[in-house]
Design a protein around this nucleic acid. Structure first.
Lengths: 252, 252
DNA sequence: CTTCAATGCGTACACCGTACTCTGAGTAAG
DNA sequence: CTTACTCAGAGTACGGTGTACGCATTGAAG
C-alpha cells in the first residue's frame, strides 16, 4: 500500500499484471469487456461498475487489475491500436502505398468504433506517454512504411505526424456524422430544421444557404462520399511529400 | 413547463433568451464564465455548480438560462468559434491565402485553449446540428474564402472539410502536447522514462528507437516546430487543390 | 492443519447533472 | 397603496460516477 500513490504515476504497462495465485481476469479480458460495452452502449456508458458487472465481478475487484480508470482507457486505447495494425507481411514496398495503407487501416478502425477518437484523445486522457505495446507497434509500422522514402528522420516524423493529424481529424468529424446519421434517423427534429431554415432565409449566410439547398448537401452525410473525400486529401498529402521531400524548404 | 421536455429537443439558439423581467445573467456572460473556468482549471472542471458559483448564483439558477449542460457546451462552442473568426474585411482576395488564413486563425484559437477540441467534439456533444451564429458565420467565411476558386460547390465543400479535418486533428494532437509540456514540466516521471527506455532497448521497435534517440526527438515537443509542421501540411493541401481542382469529375 | 498474504468486494464519500418544489421579489391591476 | 399574480432564484434530493478504505475469504506453502 506504500506505493498505491506511486502506482498511478507509473504507466500500467510498467506494472506487472497480477499473475500470482489465480487471477480471475486478465487485462485483455477487461479491455475486451470495455470495448464491447462501448460498442454496445456507447462510450459514455463505459464505467467501472458496468464493466465489472459485465464480467460478473464486484466493482472494486477491478481495481486489483487496474489502478485507475485512466489505466482502463490505456488498455482500451491499446486494444484499438491493435485493430489498426497492418498485418505482418502485408506492408507494401513502395513507401507511398505503405503510408496510404496504414492511414486507411487506421481510419477503418476509428470509424468501426465511432467513439474511438474520444477514447484515444478524450478530455481525461494522458495518452501519448502511456503508449502501450500496440501503440508503439503502430508507430513502428508507420516509420517502417517510410523506409524507402528519400526523407531524413526529421522529415519522416513530420510526414507521419501530418498524415496522422489528417486521419484523426477526419475520423473525428466523420465519426460524428456516422454516429448521428448511421442510425437511420436522418431527420434532426422538426423544430430544429424549421429554425435552421429561418436562419438561412435571413440572408446572413448566402454561401451556406447555396450549399445546403444545392445537390451537394447530400454528400455531407453520404458515407461513400466521406471515404472519397478522405482519399482525396490523403493523396494530396502523400503526393505532396513525394514531390517536395524537404522539411523546411519551400518554393513558390 | 409543459415543454420542459421539448426544450431539450430544440437547440438553444432557437429558444429565446429569458428577457422578461430582469434576468441577472445573459447567455454571453454564462459562456464567458465557462470559458474562463475552462482556461483556469481545465475542461473537466467545468461543471454547473462551479460556473454558478463563479457567477455568484445558486446552482439551479443556471437552469433558468440553459436547459441542459449540452446547451452550455453549445454556448461555449460558439464563443470559441467566435474567436476563430477572421475579422471583417481582412479576408484576402486570393482564395488560397484566404483558406490558409482561416485555417491559421482556427488553429490559433484551438491551441490558445487546448481543451477547445474536446469542447467542440467531446464524447457527449451533438455539435453539428447545434451550429450557433458564430458557427454558421465561420462556415460562411470558409465558403466565402473560396469565392474566386475554380471549383464547383461540391468541390468547395470537400476542400473545406479536408482542411478542417487537418486543422482539427492537428489541434487535437498539438493541444495535447502543449497541455502536457507547456507547463514546464517536461520530464514525465523517472519510472516511466526508465520503462520506456527498456522497451526501446528490447529491439522490437528499431525505427522508433532510432527516432527517439536522434536529434529529431526534440522537435516532437517544440511549439515552433509544431507550427512549422502545420504550415507544411496546410500548404501541401492548398497547393494540391490548386493543382487539381476536380472532385471526381472536372471543373464546373 | 496451520498460516498468511493475496484476492474479492461491500461500504462510504465526494462530485456530477438535474427534477422537483418552495420562497421571495417585481410588476401590473384594482 | 394594496393586492394578486407571475416568475427568477435556489435548496433539497436522487441516481449516477470514480475510488479510498477495510474486512472477509481463499488457496497455496510450511
Amino acid at each position: 500500500m506504500a506505493q498505491s500513490n506511486a502506482a498511478s504515476e507509473i504507466p500500467i504497462w510498467a506494472r506487472p499484471e497480477p499473475a500470482g495465485r489465480r487471477p480471475r481476469f486478465s487485462r485483455d479480458q477487461i479491455a475486451a469487456a470495455a470495448l464491447a460495452l462501448a460498442d454496445a452502449e456507447g462510450f459514455e456508458a463505459v464505467s467501472m461498475r458496468k464493466i465489472a458487472a459485465s464480467l460478473g465481478a464486484g466493482t472494486m475487484s477491478l481495481y486489483r487489475y487496474i489502478a485507475t480508470k485512466a489505466d482502463l482507457m490505456a488498455l482500451l486505447d491499446d486494444a484499438l491500436l491493435g485493430e489498426a495494425l497492418v498485418p505482418e507481411g502485408e506492408m507494401p514496398a513502395d513507401w507511398r502505398d505503405a503510408l496510404v495503407l496504414v492511414a486507411r487501416q487506421t481510419r477503418a478502425t476509428l470509424l468501426r468504433h465511432p467513439w474511438a477518437v474520444h477514447a484515444l484523445y478524450g478530455p481525461g486522457q494522458a495518452q501519448n506517454e502511456q503508449a502501450g505495446p500496440n501503440g508503439l507497434r503502430h508507430f513502428e509500422q508507420s516509420l517502417a512504411a517510410l523506409d524507402g522514402a528519400p526523407l531524413d528522420m526529421q522529415a519522416k516524423a513530420d510526414v507521419i505526424a501530418i498524415v496522422d493529424d489528417y486521419v484523426l481529424g477526419h475520423a473525428l468529424q466523420a465519426g460524428e456524422v456516422i454516429a448521428r446519421f448511421g442510425g437511420s434517423r436522418a431527420m434532426p427534429a422538426p423544430a430544429t430544421e424549421e429554425f435552421m431554415a429561418s436562419r438561412l432565409a435571413s440572408g446572413d449566410y448566402p454561401h451556406v444557404r447555396a450549399l445546403l439547398t444545392g445537390p451537394a448537401s447530400q454528400s455531407l452525410i453520404d458515407p461513400g462520399h466521406l471515404e472519397e473525400r478522405f482519399e482525396r486529401g490523403l493523396r494530396l498529402l502523400v503526393d505532396g511529400f513525394a514531390a517536395r521531400p524537404g522539411t523546411s524548404r519551400q518554393r513558390d
